[in-house]
Amino acid sequence: MSETDTNTDGSEEARTDGGGPGIVAPDDETPTWRERKERTTGLSRLTYEYFERARREDQDLRTESDYVERDVLAFPTWPHETVRNLSIVAFFTGMIFFLAATMPPHIGAPANPSSTPAIILPDWYLYWSFGLLKLGPLNPDLAILGGQKLTADRTYGVLANVVVVGVIAIVPFLNKGSARRPVEQPFWSAVGVGGVVFALTISLLAVKNLMPMNVHLLFDLTFLLPIVATTITYAILKTMREGYMYDLNRRYYRLRPPK
């Protein structure tokens, strides 16, 4: 209908504005938006199908759920978490001002390129990174290269930084599953404790010229202590898990029996 109309219009009248408004009233032939979406092909079709599925899935979850609105296993950020935080945070802001008033920073001598100070240190939160720069003794010298090192000690240290950050970044892709508490995942908690201890020991290695102990012993302890801490944590959490999970499961499954 509309097609024939436009055809006749075009042949009969001379139009000065280059055509009508281009908007045709929908008739029975005109596809609805839903139909248009369904008729698409390729990626847009896939996108449409996925959204439809996701919507249906959400709807099913909602009908099944006894929650008021959503089925997310989390605190709502507002108001539960925000209100709690505001009070705690107010206290700690006071703490910042208290620290600032009682322990103001001082400024050292002006920069002097010709005199290197005995102790060069970054701020405390970079000690770990600074410590990683001192891993020279771990840099393997290859027999093939005649005792040469593959990378300079310095490059090795920078590389260690990249490795540490990279390992932390991929944790969510290694540790799957729904366990949330340390007791439920002894291995990963132990790894975490090991990481924290390593951050501390490597920081101590960074300030080795201030440490009143043998440097070689310090270097060894830097790597041994984290391993010891990991093992102990793992043992403790494994032991705790027995009784703990029993209790937790009992109260959890009494309220929501497994399907």
């Binding site: 400024i107 050292g108 001598a109 002006p110 920069a111 002097n112 390129p113 290197t116 100070p117 060069i120 240190l121 970054p122 600074f130 720069l133 990378t151 300079a152 310095r154 490059t155 240290g157 920078v158």
Partner: peptide, 22 residues
């Protein structure tokens, strides 16, 4: 930013770190 001794030599370490990147 204060450009005192600590700042200068921390900066020195920074330059050396970035120079050591292959």
């Amino acid at each position: 930013l204060p450009w005192d001794q600590l700042a200068f030599w921390a900066g020195q370490i920074g330059v050396e770190m970035s120079l050591s990147i292959p």
